[in-house]
Design a protein around this nucleic acid. Sequence first.
DNA 1: ACGCAACAAATCGTACATTGTTTGTCGAAG
DNA 2: CTTCGACAAACAATGTACGATTTGTTGCGT
Lengths: 236, 236
Amino acid sequence: MAETSDFKAEPPEGIDALGASSEGASLYEQIREDIIEGRLAANERLVVTDLARRHGTSTNPVREALQLLRGEGFVTFIPNRGARVRPIDQDFVRDIYEIGVLIEPALTRWFVGMATEEDIAELERLQGLIEENNFADPLRHSELDTAFHTVMYQRHYNRHAAELWWKHREVLRAVSRRFNFTLARRAAIIREHRELIALVKSGEADKAAELIARHVEGSGRHVLEHMRARSAARAG
Amino acid sequence: MAETSDFKAEPPEGIDALGASSEGASLYEQIREDIIEGRLAANERLVVTDLARRHGTSTNPVREALQLLRGEGFVTFIPNRGARVRPIDQDFVRDIYEIGVLIEPALTRWFVGMATEEDIAELERLQGLIEENNFADPLRHSELDTAFHTVMYQRHYNRHAAELWWKHREVLRAVSRRFNFTLARRAAIIREHRELIALVKSGEADKAAELIARHVEGSGRHVLEHMRARSAARAG
DNA sequence: ACGCAACAAATCGTACATTGTTTGTCGAAG
DNA sequence: CTTCGACAAACAATGTACGATTTGTTGCGT
């Protein structure tokens, strides 16, 4: 059972996706999803009583979930005035991508030195599925792509960095789900993934790191273009 | 009043050092300090009732503070079994330093392009105080050193990265407070700071970035050596 | 020595009191 | 008639208290 089996996007291990408490778990996750998916608008007020009623619980679990979200940066607080949804705007996304450009190459470099036969086989399998899907099902592509990169970062000794990457990834996955891939971007993704696998095979860590930097940067640029376009359309 | 006046270490602005609520503020900060400073041992159980009694409040504020700390990664939770102090061990510190080595050069590079006369004057003023103090008062050195780097990262457009840096810095400040600086490290710090100021003046961004990478890495190595030594002593 | 049952302790959810903020109305001045 | 401001009522955040449920432990009987 060494096989990672499926392509479902899951945290790199050891990262607690758990909520505040037994019941709080789903609550935290639900509110969080609502924020990331945009069902809760940017800067929207998060009234504890409302959320409690809506989720069929009392206020205390909601309060704790909000504090947890605050610690993770999804919610902002003003004393005596409650919580608001932190807007996931262009600046926020740009910030995250820029950090990714700095961190992911380092994670990749390490992976190249540690990759096993199975890792490479798994990458090729996922890449096969990605090309097979060929962006027909965007959601599936998103999952596959995340899985692809998870294979690389999963076992990195720097758990803190891996966790950071995963948290960022979750946000970006939700954001990019709102947009389609341009043809140019599709081609670039396929090409870069193939190149990456080749570099992993030949053990060229520096080149792989450099490639990942370009890959992440390109991805960020792509998403930001879409966001800009959409916000421009909304404004015009 | 353009002058940043003092040398007190303060967050880069716009970063809420606020707690859960009016009273919760101090509570959050106190527990957090207790963890970082080591007054609460690694993996120690955090019993809500105890903490409430100790801080003279009821349980709810404590529960919220703990969730906030969880979101920030200082506390771990197991459902129905409560919270524990996340150990700030060598791995944790190493992880943080490694991320710093990746991020700080980028922040520095930007600063070199944006530095004003006042910025440079402030850096030189702080460096003067650092050399004047000459590690006689370690706490003061820590504050001055933090202020020095804050001047550089304070206004960076990537708030997320700046915030990340600050949070890491707070942890490292507390950890390194437990150790003395070796003579070699003292000399290196003074030298590198001077070099850095020179590079900022001449606008050599790449070299400054490279220098910061070395600076952070050296700092990390130094602290980790101390931690290793101490834990070895404890074990032996 | 092992299992099981009663007990102790702490988390988690609910309900409530208090305090601070927001909102809407009324009235007077311009 | 409109505008501004004081005041009051509704609203929501924060803190307190308590009961229910889960977990861990202790001691008894076999």
